[in-house]
Design a protein around this nucleic acid. Structure first.
Length: 606
RNA sequence: GCGCUCGUAGCUCAGCUGGAUAGAGCAUCGGAUUUCGAUUCCGAGGGUCGGAGGUUCGAAUCCUUCCGAGCGCGCCA
């Protein structure tokens, strides 16, 4: 039933969308004036923008060209604006130009401009809004990276959804995206996992293990691991000492936990291309961490020294000792950071440097990590390390996702049912569905705390943004069904055929103000995609979709009182087709945006 | 003590990388309303953008400094 628009459209030329087209014309005018007026040759047009004015009464678009260029052109902004405006008036897209305020140039486009844009939507279908801005540049997005010590709990899901939607968005904007998961399978916590699983193994062999001791993972989810071990090894492991059985049990437990996690992610429609094992970095004979430290040492970024004791809460067993330190302060961090623990093993940071170096070595220059709020203090040191390793040739953007407060009808839901047993991601998805989870996780800026109300997100009302947007898409299809029965019997059902059919409609008959407003809303989609992609902010897509759906619903509602505004006009098949073409434009863009968010676009709301 | 993030209408939040008179949804108040299947619409009131300085044609947005909240602060991951 869902009509996803994820179809690959590679090779298709991206649309020169309307704002970009007008910007190009403004640039052309400025270039002409520059030639005529003898402006400096190196004049920079990059700050010139064309954007929707805050107040729609000012026109359709506004440009700051005159204000930005005035200084270099040695002219007063208003005067320069007048000269630019005069030339723009000759443009065939533009019906009115006026200069306002300190030198804004307001442009009103001819209605035909929006009609033409609608034709692009219909021609490009799912590809509309796609951009070449990424220029096929490789981007690595690392997200989730939950420890493989148990199933995913609700705390993980925001970062998971955010990273996934951001990846979709970047892909749609023309980047070549790799979705990556870093498996922390080398630290002490996986040894704890192994010991916990070993207990379950003994249990599976019939032993009474009693209470799970403090410090081990108590969850029932380890029982299947114990059973699998018993099946595979019988009681052989019991005879071994810990040093012998631990790696065996650990590998099995990690593998099974990762399977569980992948299943949880699949329930949210998330798939990574690369699962990168931390342990693989320190394999005997191929120790990437040691290599990385040597690499940094050769650059003079490693030294032996001691650090001042940490401020804030005192560390009980603090011992002042000389250790191997990375000179993070030389790259913007606050203190230098240790790389080797007193037992000789590497710190997490040390392997993390090696891991990020590995990303760089694989050709990534654009790195994005999605982390939870409690890791905020870790950003500077990793960025410092990347600066040191790549000589500033790669950039890491760390996106911090804030906490989610889980509510039910406004009452806070306790995150752990009893000690050690968190509400799992799967429970939440099972209760409200992945669409609700995904959309609501994205309907807020990533760095703001988010309230997630289990009751509200399945409500069918305007309050519930997921419903409202999906309903917009479904309503479009409902209109198609009705139209087919009443006025346009040969309207194809299949999306591609329907779009092709409607592309031939007499869309120039769309002349109502409210209709043109809706077309204008469609036209800002490509811009929204680009802006959201460059800012790494998928939430902008969610808000855009909410606005578009609102406007669409509003127009539908107007038809209730004003029959001439209805989409289906019984006595006028040509006009009906034109309006269906507009509805199709809305449906296409809603489906496109929802696909970016990873949310289904249903054709009915049952 | 230091660092990071945040502070916008009564509430929940947008604000398009510096643009014009700061927006939306709830809530409140005032109207309208038997639907092209699917739980409405229009309007109004409500703001020193935490405070104070600064940068410039122009600041919610950038800088400085206070106030308040959250997170973090050698050999945890």
């Amino acid at each position: 039933m869902a009509e996803q628009s994820a179809e690959k459209t590679a090779g298709k030329s991206p649309s020169q969308h309307l704002f970009a087209a007008v910007l190009a014309r403004v640039h052309a005018v400025c270039a002409t004036l520059a030639a005529e007026g003898g402006w400096p040759a190196d004049i920079d047009f990059s700050r010139v923008v064309v954007e929707p004015p805050r107040d729609a009464t000012h026109g359709d678009m506004a440009t700051n060209a005159a204000m930005v260029l005035a200084k270099d052109a040695r002219a007063k902004p208003r005067e320069l604006a007048d000269r630019i405006a005069e030339k723009l008036r000759a443009d065939d897209l533009i019906s009115a130009v006026d200069v306002a305020g300190p030198g804004f140039i307001n442009l009103t486009l001819k209605p035909s401009a929006w009609i033409v844009e609608l034709r692009s939507v219909l021609r490009e279908g799912a590809a509309y809004g796609q951009s070449a801005a990424g220029a096929a540049q490789k981007v690595n997005v690392e997200y989730v990276s939950a420890n493989p010590t148990g199933p995913m709990h609700v705390g993980h899901c925001r970062g998971a959804v955010f990273g996934d939607a951001l990846s979709n968005l970047l892909q749609f904007a023309g980047f070549e995206v790799t979705r990556e998961y870093y498996i922390n399978d080398a630290g002490a916590q996986v040894d704890v996992l192994a010991r916990s699983a070993f207990l379950r193994y003994r249990e599976a062999l019939g032993e009474n293990i009693g209470e799970i001791p403090e410090g081990l993972y108590p969850g029932d989810y380890l029982k299947p691991v114990g059973e699998a071990l018993a099946q595979e090894h019988g009681d052989k492991l019991k005879a071994m000492n810990e040093a012998a059985w631990l790696p065996v049990v650990r590998n099995k437990a990690i593998a099974m936990m990762m399977d569980a996690i992948k299943g949880d992610l699949a329930a949210l429609n998330i798939q990574h291309e690369v699962f990168f094992s931390e342990r693989s970095l320190i394999e005997a004979g191929n120790n990437k961490v040691a290599e990385t430290i040597d690499f940094l040492r050769a650059k003079g970024d490693i030294y032996e020294g001691s650090l001042p004791p940490p401020k804030g809460k005192p560390v009980e067993d603090y011992e002042d000792r000389v250790q191997t330190l990375f000179r993070a302060t030389a790259y913007g961090d606050d203190v230098d950071r240790p790389l080797i623990k007193s037992d000789g093993s590497y710190t997490y940071f040390a392997s993390d440097i090696a891991y990020h170096k590995n990303k760089y070595d694989r050709g990534f220059r654009d790195l994005i990590d999605v982390w939870g709020a409690d890791h905020g203090g870790y950003i500077k040191r990793v960025q410092a390390a990347i600066k040191a390793i790549t000589g500033g040739k790669a950039a890491l953007d760390v996106k911090i996702v804030q906490l989610v407060r889980l509510l039910r009808n406004g009452e806070q839901v306790r995150m752990s049912k009893r000690s050690g047993d968190f509400i799992t991601l799967r429970e939440v998805v099972d209760e409200v569905g992945s669409d609700a989870v995904r959309f609501m996780m994205l309907f807020r800026k990533n760095d703001a705390v988010l309230d997630f109300d289990l009751a509200k997100v399945i409500e069918q009302s305007r309050d519930n943004a997921v419903f409202y947007v999906q309903y917009g898409h479904a309503r479009g299809h409902s209109i198609f069904r009705n139209a087919r029965e009443e006025v346009v019997p040969d309207l194809p059902e299949e999306a591609g055929a329907r779009i092709a059919y409607l592309a031939g409609a007499a869309v120039e008959r769309l002349t109502e103000g409210a209709e043109l407003d809706l077309l204008k809303r469609l036209a800002v989609y490509p811009r929204t995609v680009e802006a959201a992609a460059t800012a790494h902010e998928p939430h902008r897509i969610a808000f855009y979709l909410y606005d578009l759906a609102s406007e669409f619903h509003a127009l539908w509602t107007k038809g209730r009182d004003l029959p001439h505004l209805r989409f289906i006009i019984n006595h006028d098949a040509e006009l009906t087709k034109a309006r269906l073409a507009m509805v199709q434009g809305v449906v296409s863009v809603l489906a496109s945006g929802l696909a970016v968010l990873g949310v289904h676009a249903p054709t009915e709301m049952r």
